[in-house]
Structure formats: C-alpha cells, structure tokens
Simulated scan of single mutants.
Amino acid sequence: MTELAPRTQKGPIVPRSEPVAIAALVPADSPRSGEVDLAYARSLMEVRELPPILVCRRTMRVIDGMHRLTAATLAGRADIDVRYFDGDEKEAFVQAVQANLHRGRRLSQQERAAAARRIVAAYPQWSNRAIAQAAGLSTKTVAAIRRRSTGNEPQLNSRVGRDGRARPVDPSVGRERAAAHLREHPDASLRQIAEAAGISVGTARDVRARVERGEDPVGRRAAVRDDRVLLTAVERNNRLRVPDPRPAVAPVKDPLAVLTRDPSLRFSEAGRQLLRLLDNRALLDAGGDALSAAVPLHNRAALTAAVYQHIDTWLAFLSMLERAG
C-alpha cells in the first residue's frame, strides 16, 4: 500500500462493520500512557449498542475501542462489531491518535506530545503542520519536538504538507532553482517554472518579478543592507582620515583609564554614561568569542549590520569632537 499522505490521515476505513471473535483481536498499540480505565469500561457495559471498534486488518490489532472491547469482555460476549482499517502499522498508529483526539476519553497534552514524537520518527518527511494536525498540537510544539527528537541527525531537504505536496524546508533553495530555470528558459510559463523548481505558482510569480527588477530572487534584504552600511562606514571613516594640518596630539597609552580617573566624568550623569559606552573591554578580552558564539548563524547578518550602525554613530561623534576641538 502507498504511504499515508497527510491529507488522507483518516486512512482507508471499510465503512461496514462485521462481528469478529474477541479472541482473534490483539490489544491496541495505544497512544495512551496508562492502562485501560476499568471503571470507564464498566460504565460502557450499560450501553445497549456500542459503536464498532476499529481494527487493523493486517495485524488484527485494535486501533480504537479498547474500552469498548474491555466492556464486551467483562459482559461475557464472544464477539464484537469491527470496522477494518486497511493500512500498515505506522498508518494505524496515526489513525489511533486521530480517533482519540475528538471522541471518547481524549488524549492528554503529554500523550499527544508522545504521539507526535512517534509520528516524527515514522514520517520525517511530513511537515510540522501536518504532524500538528495529526497529533492535535500546535505547529510550534511539533517544531520543538522535532528538534529534540532528531538532534544532529541529517535533515530532509523537503517535507510533505497537509495537501500532500512536498516543499523544501529552506524556501530559498526552490527560489534559486526557479531563477536558474528562468534564466535558461526566459519564455517559460509560471506553471512550468513552479513545476521545475518545486514551488508554488505564486512563489514563481514573485521570483520572476524580482528577477525582472534585477533583485535577489530570495529577497535577502539583510545582506544588501549589510553592504550598504559597511560602505557608508568605510566612506565616512576615509573622510575622517584626511591629513589634519593641526599639531599632532601625543597618543595616550590607556585613554579609557585616564578618562575613568577624571572626577568631572565620574561624578556627572553624562560623564558616567559616556564611560559606560566607551568600555568595550569585553570585546577586546576573551569575551569577544563568547559574544560572537551566542548569536545564531541566521542572525549573523543582522548583528554585522547593527555593529556597523554603531560604527557610524561613533564616527559621527568623532567628527563632532574634531569640529569642537
């Protein structure tokens, strides 16, 4: 049987039920953490017609209905009405989770999280959103579970969404493929670009518009801003380094120490603020590596831009000092 797609998580269930000997059934591989609640099962014994239980045809394992099965056993019955599920064990587990999300004794948050971990292991190609729908959790919770479950293991380049379509985990990959296809086939339709790159038609339209405007197809604005800020800082720094006709000032060995000892700075609010701004010894000492390592890779460009913004600010302040001097 083909692999269960996210958009058909309910699976192929035979609509008709039939009586099956209780002795032929295998207890459920349940997403529940505890044993069958006997008190709840006894309360079901009073129900005249219980709904059929769901059983995996391949293994005869109960998917949904262990409390009903226990009630029938306690009542001394030899058989029970069954509907069959035609799928493998992985599909059957997803179906068991789905069946216990909205009916009967619903799964707890901890049980749904444990079920999501099993689904991530069974279907790593599924998107976080598809697993969230299957396990009754938020997408953010599933993303955290996936990070803890897979650790440093290699990750798939694409995942299957709820609609059954595979999409790249990193959307920039598909955009770059679309731009490359567009350069080789400038007359290609949006649908042809989308199919070649594995992206949506809307994304293909956006890539084509960016390429026609001469922009980056991925839209890496942070990197462009990074270069612009760097250029601004370098240009301003070069302007400030024009030879000064005034007499040269003898260099100070430890200028921060000299300023720190100055009472006019130490005992005024503006002076103390200036000293705090000037004290960057954490960067000059061994702490610089730790500060750099604390920033995740996806924010390095933003950090670089922020540093250059501060450089621009200090260069402007230096220009004020030189004009005042």
Rank of each mutant, 00 (worst) to 15 (best):
residue 270 A to V: 07
residue 277 L to M: 10
residue 136 G to F: 09
residue 254 D to T: 03
residue 6 P to D: 08
residue 161 G to F: 12
residue 149 S to K: 15
residue 63 I to V: 08
residue 144 A to P: 09
residue 12 P to E: 07
residue 219 G to A: 04
residue 169 V to E: 03
residue 172 S to A: 11
residue 146 R to I: 04
residue 254 D to R: 14
residue 261 R to L: 14
residue 325 G to R: 13
residue 251 P to T: 04
residue 21 A to L: 08
residue 301 A to C: 05
residue 165 R to M: 05
residue 298 H to K: 01
residue 159 R to C: 14
residue 296 P to E: 10
residue 51 P to I: 02
residue 320 M to A: 12
residue 229 V to S: 08
residue 94 V to L: 00
residue 254 D to W: 00
residue 298 H to V: 13
residue 172 S to C: 03
residue 33 S to M: 11
residue 92 A to I: 10
residue 274 L to C: 09
residue 124 P to W: 02
residue 203 T to A: 04
residue 169 V to M: 02
residue 161 G to M: 10
residue 195 E to F: 06
residue 264 S to E: 14
residue 210 R to P: 05
residue 115 A to N: 01
residue 78 A to Y: 02
residue 128 N to D: 11
residue 99 A to N: 14
residue 112 R to M: 11
residue 27 P to M: 00
residue 210 R to L: 06
residue 19 P to W: 03
residue 155 Q to Y: 06
residue 168 P to K: 11
residue 164 G to T: 08
residue 273 Q to C: 11
residue 56 C to I: 06
residue 129 R to N: 11
residue 277 L to Q: 13
residue 198 G to K: 10
residue 135 A to T: 11
residue 231 L to T: 10
residue 317 F to C: 13
residue 127 S to Y: 04
residue 27 P to E: 04
residue 295 V to D: 00
residue 308 Y to R: 13
residue 323 R to W: 01
residue 71 A to M: 04
residue 118 R to W: 10
residue 152 N to L: 11
residue 315 L to K: 13
residue 69 L to V: 12
residue 50 L to W: 07
residue 297 L to W: 03
residue 252 V to Y: 00
residue 50 L to K: 05
residue 204 A to E: 03
residue 238 N to A: 07
residue 85 F to M: 01
residue 111 E to A: 12
residue 57 R to C: 04
residue 224 V to K: 15
residue 192 Q to G: 15
residue 79 D to G: 04
residue 67 H to K: 13
residue 220 R to I: 06
residue 247 P to M: 03
residue 270 A to Q: 08
residue 22 I to K: 09
residue 215 E to N: 08
residue 157 N to W: 14
residue 103 R to D: 10
residue 140 K to P: 01
residue 273 Q to V: 06
residue 44 L to Y: 05
residue 296 P to Y: 06
residue 209 A to P: 11
residue 104 G to Q: 08
residue 76 G to P: 02
residue 226 D to E: 08
residue 9 Q to K: 13
residue 266 R to P: 09
residue 189 S to K: 11
residue 167 R to F: 08
residue 200 S to K: 00
residue 141 T to P: 01
